[in-house]
Amino acid sequence: MTVGYSEAATKRVTGRSGIEYAYRECGAGAVPLILLQHFRGNLDNWDPALVDALAAERRVVAFDNAGVGASGGEVPHTVAEMARDALVFLDAIGCEQADVLGFSIGSFVAQEIALIRPDVVRRLVLASSAPRGGPDMHGWAAEVIGAVGQPEPNPEGVLGVFYAESDRSRQAGMQAFGRMAVRVSDRDEPTTWASGLAQYDAVCEWGVPDHALLERVGAIKVPVFVANGDSDPMILPRYSYLLAGLLTQARLKIYPDSAHGFLFQHHAEFAADVNVFLT
């Protein structure tokens, strides 16, 4: 019997750094798909409909990186160190090669993983992403900070950033929230405000304009699928075009009437696109 993401047990593994990582997995396959989560997100913030659609064709592993949710340690203040922590986790579960799907700040981490240890990444999916050093990326717009960058979680603010203004998109957002709330036992620990501040420090460091740093991403030679929503206010779609243009093997898709959470709104279409890309 196949276990869906909502029922998958939370497992724990200790890396060589001594940090204990919390993770969940479902599906089966030789090359796992590793999921890297968004700003302040934990295991419960993945849409089960998306994960289950991905896991229908492969093994999918979601985890809390160091200092996030139920994992131990502290959140580093740079994306590069987050990537090194993620590599410790991959080593701990015995993963020698993986496909990697990074979402938002997770997509920054995914890029760094591919640059630090190229042989571990077979294919890369970058959702709501941007290259390091891009212009006008140093921090988020004031309305985004007001919605998602405050100490207390703001569901209405998250809805406004993750979904477009149309009734259809907002309804899809509410449905995604409902799917994420289905799990009632063995839920993850909320990510602390201190961890969120460290993540935002890393986002800002990543976004300091630096034309030379833009050249780094060109060293990623594996196939990459770059995707975003057409109305993302957090990581603007133009950065997806910039990123895809800097990569040597990139496919790009912008999903209509959607924002930062396009992959949850268009979960069936996005999962199908990812499965085709990885196959």
Rank of each mutant, 00 (worst) to 15 (best):
Q265E: 15
F108T: 04
V276F: 09
L36T: 13
V203S: 12
A176Y: 02
F262N: 12
R24Y: 11
R170Q: 15
A176G: 10
N275F: 02
R187S: 02
T248V: 12
K221W: 01
V31C: 12
V274H: 03
P256Y: 01
K11T: 01
M137Y: 13
S104A: 15
V222R: 15
F63R: 09
D47Y: 08
Y255I: 06
L54C: 11
G229F: 03
D119A: 12
V75A: 15
D210M: 09
C204E: 14
A114Q: 05
G245S: 07
L115N: 02
H38E: 15
D44F: 11
A202Q: 05
G4F: 04
L159Y: 03
R24E: 11
V61I: 14
D119F: 05
R122A: 10
C26T: 13
F277N: 06
D136F: 02
F103M: 12
A28I: 00
G149H: 00
E269K: 13
G67V: 02
R59F: 13
L124M: 11
T14F: 01
L278Y: 03
Y23M: 02
A259H: 07
G134F: 04
V3T: 07
Q171V: 02
G102K: 11
G27Y: 00
G196D: 08
E215L: 02
P223T: 01
F108S: 13
P76C: 09
F103K: 07
A9E: 10
F264C: 14
P151I: 05
E74A: 11
L252D: 12
G178Y: 06
G261Q: 11
G160E: 09
G4W: 04
R24K: 14
S128L: 06
G261I: 07
V79H: 04
F262Y: 14
E152V: 00
S231M: 03
D230T: 02
S169D: 08
F162L: 10
D64C: 13
R183Y: 05
G106I: 10
L236H: 12
A259D: 11
C204W: 05
G157T: 03
S231H: 04
T78P: 13
Y241E: 05
M180C: 07
W206A: 01
M137N: 14
Q265P: 04
E156A: 12
R117V: 08
M180T: 03
A70D: 10
G134E: 04
V68H: 08
V109F: 06
P155Y: 07
D52G: 12
R117Y: 09
I235M: 03
G69K: 11
A130I: 11
